[in-house]
Amino acid sequence: MPTNVYRVQGPEGTVPYQQYLIERNNNKLEEIATSLMKDVRCDGRDISAHRNLCIKTGIVTQAKGSAYLECGSTKLICSVFDPKEVPNKVEYAKTGELQCEFKFATFSCRQRRTYTRDSEERQLCNELRRALEPAICRGEFANFEIHINVLVLENDGSVLAAAITAAGLALMDGCIPMYDVIVATSLGIYKNKILVDPTYDEETLCSSTIDNGENRGTVMLAYMKNLQQITEFAQNGSMDVNMFPEYVQILTNHNCKLYKLVISAARKDVIEHFENENE
């Protein structure tokens, strides 16, 4: 791996000590699993309840639009920059481009992450771009590109869903023309139990490989409510195909609830803006 000489790296060849606590980690997951069987979640939530959200827009002064989102302990910042001309481009593009960057802060996960992008970050970045592309009126800024940056400060599960919701807010805050508000939710499935908005531990539990034919895994869905369009759908795990309509139904319902929240936050911002202008 290429080393970055400008930054002080941790000593080479170290292993996070958590990796050796196999028994403790397994016990913890088992505890969560047994309480899940009784429909009790580790943080006291209902099995079909979303974590509380904290939404704040306009927090990065240098960016055109920005948003900060907290979903339980998952915390992230998203900023959107002005459309810029695509550098070194010869052909004329009819639709604008999205340049997304998805980054985990080095301290955001249980294990320290590196500064260089890994394959998971690349994949999340692609998914974020695909989720936002259909929602933005890309014909409005032909031959230009918009930069969307997401920085995860703390990862406690459902990061991608939170990032898409935050990016939708940041785009709204940055007055980028969009077809509809975009929101996303994720589900964790463990032994046929459907957990809305799973935490990091629940996600680990859902993606564990136990092969006994039971449904397990995670599903994420980004949705535009008014147009009734799914802009991104990502699933991983092992699931019976007949269960998909049910998952999609639950996810769209939760996205509709989330939509109301996002809209009320946006409305508050607009009112505040006009009040400030009058003063």
Binding site: R130, G217, I230, Q235, N236, G237, S238, M239, Q249, T252
Partner: peptide, 15 residues
């Protein structure tokens, strides 16, 4: 059984 789903391209879908 389905183990992963990916969306390609810039389109969107009805549920």
């Amino acid at each position: 059984n389905v183990t992963a789903v990916l969306k390609k391209g810039a389109g969107s879908f009805m549920p």
